[in-house]
Simulated scan of single mutants.
Amino acid sequence: MTAVEDLDRIPAEAVRLAASRADEAAVAVSEIRRQLASARPSFILLFVPHRLQTDELANALRRSMPDSVVFGCTTAGQITPRGYEDDALLAIAFERHHFRVASILFKPISPVSIAEVVSQTERLVSQFPATPGRKRLALIFADGLSKQEDILMSALETGLKDIPVFGGSAGDGMRFERTQVLRNGEFHSNAALLLLLETDLAFAGLGFDHFQPTDKRMVVTRAIPEERLVLEINGSPAAQEYARLVKVPVAELSPTIFAENPVLVRNGNLYHVRAIQQIHGEHGLTFHSAIDDGLLLRLGRGKEIIRTLEAGLAVTDDGGEAPDFILGFDCYLRKLEIARKGLDGQASEQFRRRRVVGFSTYGEQHLGVHVNQTFVGVAFFRPKGGAPL
């Protein structure tokens, strides 16, 4: 399949797409630039595979695309016009006819200064007033190893007020060593990137998982909250008790076991996943979300993941029309489960049918809440006319 045929699988009007599987950063950026030659973007989102060196990529962007406004992050995989991929450099060019953007970089974010995030966000909002007839939304990309997304999202919700925010935590394949966000040609760790968008397109937020609670309850009896580290569950070593509940030996615990047997926390009438990242030491469990002493958890059981994916992506506008495209932030643990079950092809076909592009994350941000093992997205609908900016 050629690059052109590949990109034609998602015939969106409001964005242009480009992808490169080249091994060298300079070649990959050159291919991206060539594919976007006819685009007139307000800005470009770039989702980076872990195999590309970010310093080389930054140099290539400065040389080959010096006049382009490029944001993005490193990933744990990409969702391209082919569906799930691991090694593609994906570029999404948002046409200036339909989008305006303003940005701010929060650095450092470990620890988060709540007052500073609120203040800077309010300032950005006030300096980016809405144009009559257009709507605003925000996108957030955070260092996925910072362990600060929960606090960051609370601060952003205060600063953004009624502006909805969606996003994903940057990834690093399956290495969990270094995650970065991209702004103004530079990659940053220990940072978060906030984009404030204005668009003439109607849009709808998406957020869904495929788990339901079981009757297996857990209480966190010893934790180090600032490290998202649980040392004891139900008074026993955390890894040992979790393994007992999922009925596997401790030695067999792995990202795949964590993906298929998540723990859930209740928030009102809803349950959210608190995903386990990895074993820490001999008995601890490191989580992707906030954790604390006394937290009540339940073991989750999965529903049919492709069916829930199909249902979750089946969004339409008021006229019953499908989206022009869906910008998707999909937890890497979902991808692991899908791969283990041999459902990669079916999931990718759903993404192609629904015009989904985006990346696999280390965590998702949905309307002020940091979640895990969830698909979060924004469905943008085809333009209905209107004057350009």
Rank of each mutant, 00 (worst) to 15 (best):
A204R: 14
A202I: 01
F208M: 10
L206N: 10
L193Q: 11
L193E: 07
A191Q: 07
D150H: 12
D200W: 00
A192N: 06
E157K: 15
A170Y: 00
K161L: 10
G167I: 00
I163K: 08
Q180S: 15
L194C: 12
F211M: 14
K161R: 14
N184E: 15
G171P: 03
A204S: 14
L194A: 10
F211K: 01
A204V: 03
R175P: 00
H210A: 05
G205D: 02
D209C: 09
H188V: 05
R175G: 04
T158K: 13
D150Y: 09
D172H: 11
G173W: 07
L201H: 02
F211S: 04
V165C: 13
T179M: 07
G159T: 05
D172Q: 06
R178G: 00
F176D: 11
S189P: 01
D172W: 04
G167E: 04
T199R: 06
E198A: 09
Q180E: 15
D209N: 15
S189H: 10
S154C: 08
E177N: 13
A192I: 02
D172R: 02
R175Y: 08
N184H: 12
G168D: 01
T199A: 12
D172I: 01
L206H: 07
G159D: 05
H188P: 00
F166W: 11
L160V: 05
S189M: 07
G185F: 10
G173I: 03
G167H: 03
L182W: 11
Q212G: 08
F208E: 09
A204K: 14
E177V: 06
L193T: 06
E149V: 07
S154V: 05
L201A: 05
L193V: 10
A192Y: 03
F203P: 01
L196Y: 08
A191G: 12
I151S: 11
E177L: 13
V181D: 03
G168M: 01
P164F: 05
D209F: 02
V181S: 04
A191P: 11
A191L: 11
G207Q: 08
G173E: 09
A192S: 14
A155V: 10
Q212F: 04
L197V: 14
N184S: 14
D209V: 02
N190Q: 13
D209L: 02
T179Y: 05
L156P: 03
L201W: 01
V165M: 11
N184G: 08
L194M: 13
L194E: 09
G171V: 00
A192R: 03
E198M: 07
R175V: 09
L194G: 07
D162E: 15
L196P: 07
L152M: 11
A204H: 08
K161P: 00
T158D: 14
S169Q: 04
G159M: 02
G167A: 07
V181K: 00
S189R: 07
K161Y: 06
D162T: 13
D162A: 14
R175H: 13
H188Y: 15
L195T: 06
L160H: 07
N184I: 00
L201F: 05
F166S: 03
R178C: 12
R175A: 15
F176E: 03
G159V: 02
R175I: 06
F203Y: 15
L182E: 11
F166K: 02
